[in-house]
Design a protein around this nucleic acid. Structure first.
Lengths: 128, 128
DNA sequence: AAATAACTTAAAGTCAAATTTAAGTTAAAG
DNA sequence: CTTTAACTTAAATTTGACTTTAAGTTATTT
């Protein structure tokens, strides 16, 4: 069992974000101790780590909320949940591919600078 | 020479975004025709495509503005510009690597669904 | 016992990146 | 010649994802 600050240290998320995630419904089953403070189980932490993976690969809070709601609905949504994840997996793969194309463009631009700076150097030492 | 709608069709950016990019200083040298409408040269289109590559790999408008300003300053900033691009290249490479780790987590989760759905199928056909 | 730190809530505020609106101008089509 | 489409501007609004604020409670340290 973890406190909000412990979870913050483990995940890198500020306490305010953890409260916000709970409020918008993507972090359910967070319990409270006898004085009303948040207590996170190992299972909640594991779920949060999936939420972070989805979020950091570009899934919107709204779509994560939809997914979370389906989980709370039970096994009837297993198929849909799998489909949602597979779709996201494909989106991420496409996004990586697109990013790699852009990266190559940036690398080519760096090469252009290398040529330009080489020329400049030559002009600066006209005696060689 | 292209009109704003033509550039919109080529790049996928709405006219409002093209005006906004110009306004915030990351799309200089856009000319006007005799009645004040925007006219984009081949060079401006090429620059815009680099801007899109930088933006879609996560560079902020503010950093793109800094980079654009350095270009307008001339050859004295060549070194700095190259360094900025190389730094961004490294950021993008790190980001791709991180995304791939998250992607693997998502793929493992899909595999969990496959197991769960297989079990469910077995329960639903208890006669087999 | 008092000060400090860590939590609580609901509501308001922030931020980047556009996007939309309002009011007007110009060009092309019927 | 008038309607429609495509543009123009500056300013206001929107969106998503938090983040901060204000006011209060609880726990730990001096």
């Amino acid at each position: 069992m973890y406190s909000i600050t412990e979870i913050g240290k483990i995940t890198g998320l500020p306490a305010s974000t953890l409260r916000y995630y709970e409020q918008v419904g993507i972090l359910p089953h967070v319990d409270r101790n006898d004085v009303g403070r948040r207590v996170y189980s190992e299972e909640v932490l594991e779920w949060l780590e999936l939420v972070i993976a989805l979020k950091d690969t570009g899934m919107s809070i709204d779509d994560i909320r939809t997914y979370t709601a389906m989980i709370l609905e039970g096994d009837d949504t297993l198929n849909k949940r799998r489909e949602l994840l597979v779709q996201h997996k494909q989106d991420v793969e496409m996004s990586i591919a697109k990013t790699q194309v852009y990266l190559e463009k940036i690398i080519r631009k760096v090469a252009v600078y290398d040529v330009l700076m080489h020329q400049k150097k030559k002009q600066k030492n006209p005696l060689i």
